[in-house]
Simulated scan of single mutants.
Amino acid sequence: MPLLHRTIKLVLATCVAINLANLIHLSSPTSAGIIAILSLLDTRRASLKTAWARLWSTILALAIASLAFSLFGFHLLTLGLYLCLYVPLAYKANLTAGIAPCTVLVTHLFLEQSTSLTLIGNELALFLIGAGIALIANLYMPSQDKQIQAYHEEVEQGLKAILLRFQDLLLTGDGRNEAQLITQLDQTLQKALEVVYLDRHNQVFHQTNYQVHYFEMRLAQNKMLRTMARNINKFSLESREAVILANLFDRTALQLSRHNPGHELLEDIELFHQAFRERPLPQTREEFEARATLFQLLHDIEAFIQLKVDFYEQYAYEN
């Protein structure tokens, strides 16, 4: 969430919560503002999950405190006893997010020297107002769609550049490949995944794994490209097979779009396998090693394309 949006939300949620608590004449209305601040998290899902946990934490805290104060009086040692009982139970029940705000509410009982239903209702109302206003404020989240689409374009252009670079290296056989484009694409993919993970956590009722799995698929493909880059660096012999494989890299680069299923490329690879099998056997050790490297590259590009095909078949309805 951008800092400006977060700041505006914090200010509005705090002021609205305190004002609402004042309007209905609750005691200690500023506590509603504090709870609103603590409940305003970076994503809708996190805010909703935390608010739900803190509700149960508040109920548990007020129940333990009421019992302790009723039995042992309003003493500092009793407040300590409450903490000794409440904190371990909160940890055991995975309600630790509520320890601080709930204890603030309990101190109101201690200061007022009362465990009346009216006062307990006041504390519950403070919590509900603070958490509720925070949830309402988080209904608005700036859309990440444009940024995600921009990453789609950047990633596909990055993959295309790498594949065309491989084509050039196979044709020239100069072995000068430092994988800089692959490293740059890795960085872009990590940034893209951060954005789509955040966007997914803002989808409470309508969730899809499409964007997450898309960029994870591209990350796996880029890892394969790094392996291919090392093999291409070993290759320096001009041959008919190298030209055929270079053409395959070119065709793959032109069909990278997520809207392209990639089935035709797999069919082409089968034809390349057949063409390679029909070629004369290598006559020298250098030719044999070059042929082995080319076969490995062919298998690698096949696995690269298969990842895309599997992804398309799973998410064809969202393309």
Results as ranks from 00 to 15, higher is better:
residue 193 L to W: 03
residue 267 E to S: 07
residue 260 N to S: 15
residue 72 F to S: 00
residue 121 G to Y: 09
residue 147 Q to L: 12
residue 130 G to V: 05
residue 119 L to Y: 02
residue 221 Q to M: 15
residue 120 I to G: 01
residue 84 C to E: 03
residue 186 D to T: 12
residue 71 L to K: 04
residue 61 A to V: 00
residue 241 E to C: 03
residue 59 I to M: 07
residue 197 Y to G: 00
residue 299 H to M: 04
residue 269 I to L: 09
residue 112 E to W: 10
residue 291 R to W: 01
residue 53 A to N: 12
residue 141 M to A: 10
residue 51 A to N: 06
residue 232 I to S: 12
residue 162 I to A: 02
residue 246 A to M: 08
residue 227 T to H: 09
residue 205 F to T: 14
residue 256 L to C: 02
residue 124 L to R: 05
residue 131 A to G: 11
residue 296 Q to G: 02
residue 38 L to R: 05
residue 300 D to E: 11
residue 261 P to G: 02
residue 164 L to C: 05
residue 68 A to G: 00
residue 138 N to W: 06
residue 220 A to M: 15
residue 7 T to F: 11
residue 204 V to F: 11
residue 119 L to P: 02
residue 289 E to F: 14
residue 89 L to V: 10
residue 71 L to C: 00
residue 281 L to W: 08
residue 298 L to K: 05
residue 217 M to V: 12
residue 167 Q to T: 15
residue 245 L to P: 04
residue 252 T to G: 00
residue 249 F to S: 00
residue 93 A to T: 09
residue 291 R to M: 01
residue 64 I to D: 01
residue 255 Q to I: 02
residue 107 T to N: 09
residue 257 S to R: 12
residue 17 A to I: 06
residue 249 F to Y: 15
residue 128 L to H: 05
residue 23 L to A: 11
residue 190 Q to C: 05
residue 168 D to W: 15
residue 57 S to T: 04
residue 272 F to Y: 15
residue 17 A to C: 08
residue 117 L to A: 15
residue 111 L to A: 14
residue 42 D to A: 12
residue 210 Y to A: 03
residue 156 E to K: 09
residue 172 T to N: 08
residue 158 G to C: 04
residue 305 I to P: 04
residue 313 E to D: 13
residue 143 S to Q: 10
residue 12 L to C: 13
residue 129 I to W: 13
residue 201 H to K: 15
residue 213 H to E: 07
residue 101 P to S: 07
residue 178 E to M: 10
residue 11 V to F: 13
residue 8 I to W: 04
residue 280 P to Q: 04
residue 126 L to G: 02
residue 140 Y to V: 05
residue 314 Q to T: 14
residue 244 I to Q: 10
residue 72 F to D: 00
residue 168 D to Y: 14
residue 101 P to A: 05
residue 109 L to N: 01
residue 63 A to S: 11
residue 143 S to F: 10
residue 51 A to Y: 11
residue 187 Q to L: 14
residue 29 P to A: 04
residue 296 Q to M: 09
residue 309 V to A: 00
